[in-house]
Amino acid sequence: MTEEKEGKKYTTISIPTPLAEKIKKRIEGTGFNSLSSYVTYVLREVISGIEEESEEAFSKEDEEKVKDRLRALGYLD
């Protein structure tokens, strides 16, 4: 189910109730004001760690140009 909240789309995900209860206890007195905000935080952290980088193709010619410029400017010997 997807819903709009203040213009941002949110979706509902099911997690086991005992886990939800554990998290609710865990976030008491912290800056997290809801179970959702905590789960969002954790998922963002996890996902960012495993996201792939789309590697830019650096041609040999490009590489030489960059190297030459860095040498000319004194950044490389």
Partner: peptide, 16 residues
């Protein structure tokens, strides 16, 4: 501009 490196250049520099 002798001090103006693009992200591609700084990344290359750090790698080197």
């Amino acid at each position: 501009d002798n001090y103006n490196l693009s992200p591609r250049e700084t990344r290359f520099l750090f790698k080197e």
